[in-house]
Amino acid sequence: MTAPLLATTIASPSFWAFVGVVAGIYTIFALGLQLQFGFTGLLNFGHVAFMAISAYTMAILIVKVEAPMWAAAPAGIAVAMVFGLLIGLPTLRLRADYLAITTIAFGEIVRYVALNQDGLTGGPIGTINLKGSGTSASYNGDWLAFQGKVQHALETVFGDMGKDTAMLAIVWTVAIALIVAMQVLVKAPWGRVLRSIREDEDAASSLGKNVFAYKLQALALGAALAAVAGLFFAFQFSFFSPQDFDPLTTFFGYIIVILAGTARNWAVPVGAVIFGVIFAGTRFFEFPPFTYFGSADRAYLRLIVVGLILIGLMAFRPQGLLGKREEMVLE
């Protein structure tokens, strides 16, 4: 995800509200990976595609079909889930490493289609081009109205606040509700079956568990979570383009899950906030060695740091900050 340049500083509350919103979106996104990878052991490297599919489906339905947002958004989630099932059918019987490669290929196919089917997606320029060149398309009218209402309601209770704060409240309310829901599911016997599959598929199927069906459910449900993240992403940035959905975003999701600890739902927001601060915060570090670098170079430096964190975690603390070593499964 590329954040637009902000004319703010590290001290500004609206900057931190922005970091908070992005961390919330990443929390929802990574929660889906936690279900697929953390609990079920599925190495899904095409997670970002589900985000892209829901965001595009919604934007296209609103702009081209003039569907109301409250219908287009659920449709986005549904289409993402259908794609989850479609990609799962041929790939979920594959070994972990083959699954990783085929899913990343799937994600890239989605991005290529978004990039090249200008008529459908607006092409490389993004959703602003959904009505063709000359007119700028927008899909978030309904959403802004809703966000305004939330802001108004909150202001009657808490006093003045910005529209960023309203967005922050909405995103985190949804994020926490989804964490609770996921926690209910994985604490149920359903989650026990997922964990057994993660460790040993043959053991699970020898006890009568339909391993394939459970994997499919985990993939589709995780896709739905990515889809929700995709909707919020679309609302937050008011337009988006295919480059927002490159494989890097999926890898960021993995770093959050691993940083937090696998098979730990409540750790995901902690991982997302830490990641958000590292990622957004380094933009504003005004001391050496950061001051030696220009802003483009700092972007590279940030990604180098992120890569080093992933390597360091895998080498020294593969269970993450809040995970339990005894429960960690990494083949």
């Binding site: 460790e199 053991a203 020898s206 005894e326 499964v329």
Partner: peptide, 11 residues
């Protein structure tokens, strides 16, 4: 059951 046991060690 399995000759080489398949106890789920992380549970």
């Amino acid at each position: 059951t399995f000759q080489i046991t398949k106890a789920l060690t992380k549970m």
